[in-house]
Design a protein around this nucleic acid. Sequence first.
DNA 1: CTAAAACCTGACATCAATGTGAGAGGCAAG
DNA 2: CTTGCCTCTCACATTGATGTCAGGTTTTAG
Lengths: 123, 123
Amino acid sequence: MRIGELAARAGVSVRSLRYYEEQGLLTSTRSAGGQRHYTQDDVERVAFIQRLYTAGLSSRTITELLPCLDSPSDENSDAAMERMLKERDRLSTHIEDLLRTRDALDVLMIAAQAHRDARQAVA
Amino acid sequence: MRIGELAARAGVSVRSLRYYEEQGLLTSTRSAGGQRHYTQDDVERVAFIQRLYTAGLSSRTITELLPCLDSPSDENSDAAMERMLKERDRLSTHIEDLLRTRDALDVLMIAAQAHRDARQAVA
DNA sequence: CTAAAACCTGACATCAATGTGAGAGGCAAG
DNA sequence: CTTGCCTCTCACATTGATGTCAGGTTTTAG
């Protein structure tokens, strides 16, 4: 498929796909005329990239991780492994952080609700 | 306390504090000479702001939420309440997302480890 | 009083992902 | 073959939080 279709299927912009390629996250074969062609697998790959992006990984970090997905027996997978562990830690910490923030929001909302109820009771 | 001390206590840069004020997230009294002065409460306030920032809220959104912390019985707390609910949802979704991403990473790591073990067994 | 340290405003720089627009060329249907 | 849509590259713009620098003022320690 061409880039427009991949963009539609993966739910990202064409611009982003070209950017991913520029960053070495995605490769494509080119038609005689120079247009990018993709396979079905690339849809999943882009989805995975998106997932990592929304997890807050930079394209730089993703670049280091993806080889592990591509050639899962690489010699240099040691570095990738280390990287993954590190990112997993970061993720866990961040998740904890978000949970605490959500709790804080809940406290705020409960307080606000109490105020509202009190006002209502008076009225 | 002056801005430098607040920055140190809250663990943020002086620059950021001035930015927070510019965005209406933080206020200060001024000395005769024009320097900002803060109270102990501001340390917690900045910490809370930081918490919301790392939760991915924009300063724009935080601005809408903070009045609810300041004057907890405001008439316009309805809007803030709605906003909080919305952000809470967004947070929950994001947390789910991160959990799934972490799981995906785990799968990748297990696969990588299996490969490594296999290699080891052969060697 | 003086010098050093901290502060002030204002402006420009940065980073990362993405948007946007121009000008040119590829590709498929009629 | 032509028309219209899709794609190409290149380059500049944007956003948000923060860094940084410059030139000047305030505060504090000695």
